[in-house]
Amino acid sequence: MEVYELANIKSAKKRILVNRTKAARNKSIRSAVKTSMRKVDEAVANNDKAAAEVALKEAISTISKATSKGVYHKNNCARKVSRLSKAVNSIG
């Protein structure tokens, strides 16, 4: 695979390829996190406590995995989980 960038040095060309791969992986993980968070928000909006709790458990798992892989900072993870938990707990 040829790299069409300004890089002329072999290691720099490799860096470009590696960075593209990692960026694609991170994008996929971030997308999965957003989807799981959206599912929790939808359940909260519909006042469905049972569905919200199930979605919350899955969202926490997804967010934690993303954090362990270095996609998110641990405080970012904690903030997301806290906000989702607060939303679920607000359902009567």
Rank of each mutant, 00 (worst) to 15 (best):
L6T: 14
A50E: 10
S28E: 08
A50R: 12
M1K: 09
N47H: 11
A7H: 15
S82H: 07
L6V: 14
V54S: 06
A43E: 06
N26Y: 12
T62G: 02
E2F: 07
R15H: 10
S68Q: 14
A45R: 13
V33F: 08
A87Q: 13
A24E: 09
V54G: 04
I91N: 04
I91D: 01
N46C: 01
A55V: 06
L6Y: 05
N46P: 04
K22M: 11
N89C: 01
A32S: 12
T67P: 03
S64I: 07
S82M: 05
R79L: 09
A12I: 15
A52G: 08
T35L: 11
I63M: 09
T62C: 00
K13L: 15
A52Y: 04
V40T: 08
A78K: 14
N8K: 14
N46L: 08
R30T: 08
R79D: 15
S64M: 02
I9Y: 11
E53Q: 13
K86S: 07
A24I: 08
N19E: 14
A52W: 01
S28G: 12
A66Y: 06
A12H: 11
S85K: 15
T35S: 13
N76C: 05
K13F: 06
K57I: 08
K14D: 14
L84S: 13
A43T: 06
M1G: 15
N19W: 14
K86Y: 09
E58Q: 09
H73A: 13
S61I: 00
H73F: 12
K34C: 01
A78S: 13
T62L: 11
A59Y: 15
N26L: 00
K80W: 14
S28H: 06
N26R: 11
V44W: 03
K34V: 05
N76Y: 13
N19V: 02
A55K: 08
T67R: 10
D48M: 03
T67N: 10
A55T: 07
V44S: 01
A52C: 04
K80Q: 12
K13R: 12
